[in-house]
């Protein structure tokens, strides 16, 4: 399976968020992928979608983002929301009756993201398929989609000038220690043995460190940690 190009590698590139969503779409074979985020610090909203232009235009013209339950209701959940939980609502029918005319399915999932400064985001994916197939596809992708949702959200929030200064999560000494040993070429098991902790503890701290450094992969996180002088290059 191809690797997703980290958004931090695409800094300052125009259209990078659209490009990233296209990558996600083709990697998992979804019909569509969409992201909407709200940054109360900068007072901005950001939307990126792979939907066809005509649907995008109509959606904005009808102000569906104000009533679409895959946004307005799903945003308040902490776990991924299968759209089947929302289809009984009147607004769902209102939006998706028209969406169907544009070939957009009502089989979807919204992954809500909560950031540290009251910022919220949502990554949605859709796929027109049978209920059984849909469940399987989501079950196999859900973990990665969680990581992708936060990666996209952080990158979009950081693109707001003010937030870029505010938004950085501090790394703990353990996270830095583990990044340093990883940069020195040690495996997770080596590090666990050196520090006298479990393999899983190393994994969980590495995962957290990657996200705090807005990286999808460990090499990307190491590069950023070196650039920020958190660890020494070896």
């Amino acid at each position: 399976m191809m690797h997703l190009i980290d958004l931090s590698e695409l800094t300052a590139q125009r259209g990078r968020f659209d490009f990233f969503l296209e990558q996600v779409r083709s990697r998992f074979g979804f019909d569509h992928v969409a992201y909407l985020g709200a940054n109360p610090v900068a007072g901005t909203m950001h939307g990126y979608v792979t939907y066809p232009e005509e649907w995008k235009r109509l959606y904005i013209q009808k102000a569906f983002h104000l009533i679409d339950p895959t946004l307005t209701i799903a945003q308040r959940s902490i776990s991924p929301v299968d759209w089947s939980r929302l289809e009984q609502t009147e607004n769902f029918r209102k939006v998706f009756n028209i969406a169907h005319d544009f070939g957009i399915t009502s089989h979807g999932l919204t992954i809500p993201v909560r950031g540290p400064y009251g910022d919220t985001g949502m990554l949605s994916v859709t796929l027109d398929t049978s209920g059984h197939e849909w469940k399987g596809r989501i079950a196999s992708a859900i973990g990665e989609l969680q990581s992708i949702a936060v990666h996209m959200h952080d990158a979009v929030m950081n693109s707001d000038a003010f937030s870029n200064v505010l938004r950085h999560s501090l790394l703990s000494s353990r996270e830095i220690e583990i990044l340093q040993w990883t940069a020195a070429g040690k495996t997770q098991q080596d590090i666990a043995d050196i520090l006298g902790i479990s393999h899983r503890t190393v994994e969980v701290h590495l995962r957290s460190a990657r996200e705090k450094l807005y990286s999808l992969t460990t090499p990307q996180a190491i590069a950023r940690a070196i650039a920020l002088h958190l660890i020494y290059p070896i």
Partner: peptide
């Protein structure tokens, strides 16, 4: 120390 922060 700062807490762990992860979508997972």
């Amino acid at each position: 120390e700062p807490p762990l922060r992860s979508s997972r």
